[in-house]
Design a binder for these strands. Structure first.
Lengths: 339, 339
DNA sequence: ATGAAAGCGCTAACAG
DNA sequence: CTGTTAGCGCTTTCAT
């Protein structure tokens, strides 16, 4: 509630500079058609009077709003993560660079971005808020999905090929000589978790390896679930897997700790590959081999696409899919010769 | 850039409801002076036409803006942390509850919240952006500081008594019988890190314990710095500390891992206390004793205070200081009898 | 309890 | 290249 103070207006500037408000408006908006002389004069006055255009008035008059909304689920599982942090940071920086405002909305699936306050919205992951996407779409608000591919919706998106990423990682393990490979899922409410599982399955099938349901352990991205998975594996005395593909680095690190505490060596006794390329990978007992997903690029692309769409709502729909990258470090190697 | 579409306006509603736009405005703003009959009629039309008041117009006409800006430094050290996550989440939820918009600005010290876009701003930590605080203050924009106490500025703030928190934790170690207590700092650019160090020093002095500079290890909240600190301590063969107070849980957990890998047992050989009450505490090899700081409460208070200040800019300045709480778990216990 | 009318500060034709 | 003028959609006196 900016109190009604005597704020300097465009009119004050015009008067002080000896030009019309239109000319002032032109220099504010960097129109090329202003005499260099006038421009300088106006800019000087603006600086001297510390004039700030009234945003509400600009938006009302122009009918435009360069505020970008980011709606992201706030469920604990996906929220307290390197991934979410990186999304905020990247979207924040992208907005900063484009000089647009960044309205953040953490949703529990019930409340949505304030439609009246934004010119467009990025949805990072779609979980229980698919309806919101449709609402915005129907209302004609520019929308871009991030880290979520909606094959059935007519909407631009920037996502990552999680299935391919997991497949590549699993293949890496297979090439190393593993044939007993377990998998720990993320929160299956997320599309990424589903796709990663699928990539794992594909790789095994392609290699002609048997897929044991027992070796697909349900995680939810939490360290707690990772520890539970590790304990389950430690309990498989008989034909224990020799390698594990884990759906996040955070979980992978927790499992590494649990294994070491349980008397196993990583990677000597068991290989582990994570997902995310969280910096945390680098500082544990072993540097973690992981699948990097380009969050920063994804955010940049999403914001850019949205920005363009705000300028041209009839722009063609783009479904961009970025690739992951396998980062090979020390936590996965060839299995010990079978006994 | 919401395209100029034929959006339903207050006029459309008025016409359809057979009243004046003033009456419509009154029901939008919940004025009590509207005949029940009219109110119902208008509300029905609003619903039917799916009318959304134009925010820019409302703000321009009323001169008010209920958007809250959050400016937070984006340096990696403090950014990728449970703390920052919790700040976002808590501020986000607080805004959601108050039904105000939440504009996030991650600053590198150069760019600042868009003053024209917000009605007030919360500064979470002040590092290189103190000038921004002063600018907003000077401009008459309501401001509240969070997790930062500026004794010399005339501004409301909500902070945590970090010195007392660290002191209590150190005293806990002393009472357990430790007299060789080390300390790992956070990023000393933050006020919290400075205060925690001070609390540690005070506790030692009060207990008449010698303070060795060698036992104050510089960390920066990163796992990397924690590992370095742990290695330093592992190297102190002679009179190694028997307990360590660490300025964040994340660092503490990393040190626990490093110690275990180095052949020490926690807490048998060495006691550790962290800071934050990050959920990560619970799932490592030992549940971490820690100092909890009430981030959620801090955020709620900050947003509430700001909200009140936006309604009454001349409101009295409040400097709220919340307390920490020592959460005793398993990582700190009495030292083994001296050899 | 309700409506008419005057702006809020700025942008965008349009005319010059 | 510049100024005039008409709104943008809503809130807010001021009458009634």
């Amino acid at each position: 509630m900016t109190a009604r103070k005597k704020v300097v207006s465009i009119e004050d500037v015009a008067r002080a500079a000896g030009v019309s408000i239109t000319t002032v408006s032109r220099v504010i908006n960097k129109f090329p058609t202003v005499k260099e002389d006038n421009r300088r004069k106006v800019e000087e006055v603006i600086r001297r009077l510390n004039f700030k255009p009234n945003l509400a008035a600009q938006r009302l008059a122009s009918g435009s709003n360069y505020t970008i909304g980011l709606e992201i689920p706030r469920y604990e599982g996906i929220f307290y993560s390197f991934y979410a942090m990186e999304v905020f940071r990247s979207v924040g920086i992208a907005c900063d660079n484009l000089r647009v405002d960044f309205l953040l909305h953490l949703t529990d699936g019930k409340t949505s971005v304030n439609a009246a306050a934004v010119g467009g919205v990025v949805f990072a992951d779609v979980i229980n808020n698919r309806q919101h996407v449709e609402d915005f779409l129907k209302a004609g608000t520019p929308v871009v999905l991030m880290n979520y591919l909606a094959a059935d919706m007519d909407v631009s998106s920037v996502s990552v090929d999680n299935a391919a990423g997991a497949k590549t990682a699993a293949e890496h393990l297979i090439h190393l000589g593993h044939n007993r490979i377990a998998f720990v899922t993320g929160d299956m409410a997320t599309q990424a978790a589903q796709d990663r599982l699928e990539g794992y399955k594909t790789a095994l099938k392609d290699a002609g390896l048997a897929m044991t349901e027992e070796w697909v352990l349900r995680g939810d991205y939490s360290r707690k679930s990772a520890r539970a998975a590790a304990e389950k594996i430690l309990g498989m005395a008989a034909a224990r897997p020799t390698a594990i593909l884990v759906s996040s680095d955070d979980m992978a690190m927790e499992m590494v700790s649990a294994f070491i505490e349980g008397g196993l060596k990583v990677p000597e006794d068991i290989s582990i590959i994570g997902f995310d390329d969280d910096p945390v990978c680098l500082y544990g007992p072993v540097a973690l081999t992981t699948v990097r997903q380009p969050i920063k690029e994804m955010a940049q692309e999403a914001v850019k696409e949205l920005y363009l769409r705000m300028q041209d709502p009839d722009r063609q729909i783009n479904k961009i899919i970025l690739s992951t990258e396998l980062i090979i470090r020390d936590s996965a190697r060839a299995p010990k010769r079978s006994p």
